[in-house]
Structures are given as C-alpha cells and as structure tokens.
Design a binder for these strands. Structure first.
Lengths: 132, 132
DNA sequence: ATAAAACCGGACTAATATAGTCGTATTTAA
DNA sequence: TTAAATACGACTATATTAGTCCGGTTTTAT
C-alpha cells in the first residue's frame, strides 16, 4: 500500500554515513560491509546519487564519495524520485480498445490520484536530514 | 511507493455498483461481466466485505449482495485494511542475530513510520462515498 | 606499471508480492 | 433434485523488486 523500497533505505543509510564522514571520502565498500548491503547494488545507487549531484565522487585508488549538498536542503521526495520507479497510484480500467469501462464518469481515479498528491506533498516537506 | 492494488479498485467499483442497485441484490457475475473483473477473484473480495459487515449477502439461486453500511460512514482506511496486506513501511536492518545494524540509535525507521501514520490519517478522513 | 577505486550498461537470477484460477462444499428458489 | 448462487482454501501465473554477474573503461596514488 505504502512502502519504501530497500534501495531507498540503502540510500538513506548511505547518506547518513557519508554525511557523518564529513570531508573524508567514503568508499562503497565501507558502507556495504558495515551495514551488510550488497556491494554492486549499493554502487549503482550511489552512482545515481552522484549523477543527480547529491553526492560528489573522486576516482582512483583513494577515491570515494562525499556529500555535495546539505541534507537539510534535499526533500525526501527528491530522493524517492531518483531511487524509485514512479508508477501511478491506480490505472484506469480499460477494455480491449482502451476505453474506460466506467461509462458515465470516472469518479474513482481522480480522488485516488488526489490522495497520491497529498502523499507526495508530505514527502516534499520532509528533508533527508529529518531521517538520518 | 504508494499504490493501490487492483483488489482495492475492484472493491470500490463493486461498492459503487451495489450502492447504485439499492435494495436489489447484485450477483458477483453482474459486476464481473460489466467491468471485466475476474469472477473468482471478485467473489473473494466481496466475501471479505461481507465478513466485515460492509456487505450483506444471501445465498441460493436468487442470492447476491447488498450494502449493509452507508458508504459515507466507511473510511477508505477501513477498506484498505480489509483488502490489502498490511506491511510495515520499512523493515529494520538486522544482522544474523536479529540485532539492529545501526548501532547508536535508529533515526531512520521512526521518521519513516511517522510518514506512514500521516498517510493513514489521510485515508481515515476520506470516506468511500468520496470515490464512488 | 599496478592496484584499487569509481563508472557504466545490460543481462541475468532469485525472492517476494500481487493477481488470478481451480475444485469443492453449502445454500436455496423453483 | 437441479441450477445458480455464495463460501473457502489451495494452487498457479504474472509482475515487481532485489540482487548478481559480466565485461568492461577511466582515474589516480603509490
């Protein structure tokens, strides 16, 4: 019904860890070993966060990640959008020709979508710093 | 992230249909055929709603369902609880011995759970009649 | 040069959750 | 007594999520 994915958890854990490390770079392996998170999966998550400029990275033998933005300036909604596949809260009921099955007026989808909006607004008001 | 199941959609569609039928009993087949919903699946949903006293039923050849409660007195949260499997928004990170992996204090789970509560509060304020 | 790190993409498998099916029992009007 | 309905549990199928594996390239301190 409403559930965050493991990936989002991993992202939050990582952001906290990297934030606590301050100027010191954090390797994927550091986080992966400490919290028992699969290395390859985590690596992809951090690469995404880098690409979206939430993290900074340096390559090479002493490379790793540092924070690029303040956690109290990143709304949870942003992280969710980066990490999770967005799907609409409810699909319309279609027949074979893609026509809505509820002939008169669809009074179901709109109100449910409005719930989705309300939920997304909650996520916008929460900053990552509230969680880590 | 936040998504209603098909079952919930089917339940809302059915409640609307049955509500519109008034005192006349509605068979599973009526709804199943009209909206192209799998009969057996729908049957189980309506059985659950019967068990929870949202619907009334009569068996036998002229049997079917009628409404047992007013739709404006049933919060969406109640329907969700009946239909969907409740799962916590986020599981704790455990090691093999079921100890929390985040040693100091878990600052992640609680705030995420609070989001869940806020969401559930939204669902409590919406009545089924708002959707059908 | 080498080793260890990020970086990249895609294909694959495994696990879990959701959706849907099947068989059979019970009820009841005609 | 039959046909059509609800009732119910076990099962299969599909979709989504989680995680793995491969086969690299690029970067950089030592």
């Amino acid at each position: 019904m409403v559930k965050f994915s493991k990936k989002l958890e991993y992202a939050l854990i990582s952001l906290r860890h990297i934030s606590n490390a301050g100027a010191e770079v954090t390797r994927v392996r550091d986080i992966s070993e400490k919290y028992n998170i699969p290395h390859d999966l985590l690596a992809k998550i951090l690469q995404k966060l880098k690409k979206e400029n939430i993290l900074d990275s340096s390559q090479g033998i002493n490379g790793g990640y540092t924070l690029n933005r303040k956690l109290n300036e990143i709304p949870l909604s942003e992280l969710v959008n980066i990490i999770e596949n967005s799907t609409s809260i409810v699909e319309c009921m279609h027949d074979e020709d893609n026509n809505c099955m509820i002939t008169d007026s669809c009074t179901i989808k709109d109100p449910l979508s409005r719930i989705q909006s309300e939920f997304e607004n909650i996520l916008k008001t929460k900053m990552i710093s509230d969680f880590v």
